[in-house]
């Protein structure tokens, strides 16, 4: 017992002595490693062949006899060993159970009277519901390293937006007139790719099927892409497909925004001007 305070050791020994019925000094000596541990007063019955004394064992462990027998049979079945002989066990059990039930002095149990014991039924492995795996990672304190960057980003963004807003006014055309559709009529810029598609395909295709399936495909990317690697060199196909669609959307949006004039016909923005409002 490496460097344990004497009084703690003593308290522990006293408790152990009370539980096992041995003397305090004996246990204390054993704890300090002066004498080899004495054999336990009531050693559990060893594997004495297949004919084990069920009654004794049941009494020792405080387990109902029939449960113990069932466990033995199950174990024997699992191990492929012959079943424990019932011949020796059964009469002994019949003889031994009766006096216990009648209340005659039972054989000295290994567990003293009034002490409750727990049996370990099963070990449930602690699986966590969240990511608690901690791999050693190169980390820095959020303060100041991250917060400082965020604060600067916040200031820069606010500043840019404010200055831009001083010089560039948001568009406001004349009052809404439902009888006079402007030519061309364009959706907000982020829908202009779709509006561009609308000039090639049926509304059902350009307005519903393509954006609908596109959005669904986008949402399902993590479940479609089963490649576990995040290294760009391992993900050439995924990157290629995604880039293809992003570039397609960007080209269509640019085309719809700047290369479509009156009647949504093709124009060059540097020839006929820009038919586009933010």
């Amino acid at each position: 017992m490496a460097g344990l305070p004497e009084h703690l050791l003593r308290r522990s020994a006293e408790a152990k002595a009370k539980a096992t019925g041995r003397s305090v000094d004996e246990i204390l000596a054993e704890m300090k490693g002066e004498t080899p541990p004495a054999p336990a007063t009531a050693a559990p019955t060893g594997e004495s062949g297949s004919a084990r004394d069920l009654t004794k064992e049941a009494a020792d462990l405080g387990v109902p006899q029939d449960l113990l027998r069932r466990a033995m049979i199950a174990r024997a079945k699992a191990d492929g060993t012959p079943l424990p002989t019932e011949a020796g066990a059964a009469p002994a059990a019949a003889a031994a159970v009766a006096p216990v039930a009648a209340g005659s002095p039972a054989p000295m149990p290994a567990i003293p009277e009034g002490v409750r014991t727990q049996r370990l039924l099963t070990v449930v492995k602690a699986g966590s519901i969240q990511q608690t795996k901690r791999e050693p990672a190169d980390k820095v304190n959020t303060w100041p390293h991250l917060l400082a960057i965020e604060f600067v980003a916040l200031l820069v963004l606010s500043g840019l937006l404010f200055v831009f807003s001083i010089y560039v006014d948001a568009p406001l055309l004349e009052f809404a007139n439902f009888n006079q559709q402007p030519n061309p009529s364009k959706a907000p810029w982020y829908f202009l790719g779709l509006q561009e598609l609308l000039s090639y395909f049926d509304p059902m295709v350009a307005g519903i099927i393509i954006p609908g399936y596109g959005l669904a495909a986008l949402a399902f990317i993590p479940y479609l892409d089963r490649n576990p690697s995040v290294r760009p060199s391992d993900r050439k196909l995924a990157i290629m497909i995604f880039t293809f669609f992003v570039m397609g959307a960007a080209i269509l949006t640019t085309y719809g925004s700047f290369f479509r004039g009156p009647g949504f016909n093709f124009t060059f923005p540097w020839v006929d001007g820009i038919w586009f409002d933010f």
């Binding site: 568009p171 406001l172 055309l173 004349e174 009052f175 809404a176 007139n177 439902f178 006079q180 559709q181 402007p182 009529s185 364009k186 959706a187 907000p188 829908f191 779709l194 509006q195 609308l198 509304p203 350009a206 307005g207 519903i208 954006p211 409002d277």
Partner: peptide
């Protein structure tokens, strides 16, 4: 509620 707003939204929501 100007011409830009009304007609952009009309075109957009028609889809």
């Amino acid at each position: 509620w100007d011409q830009l707003a009304v007609w952009a939204v009309t075109v957009g929501s028609n889809m």
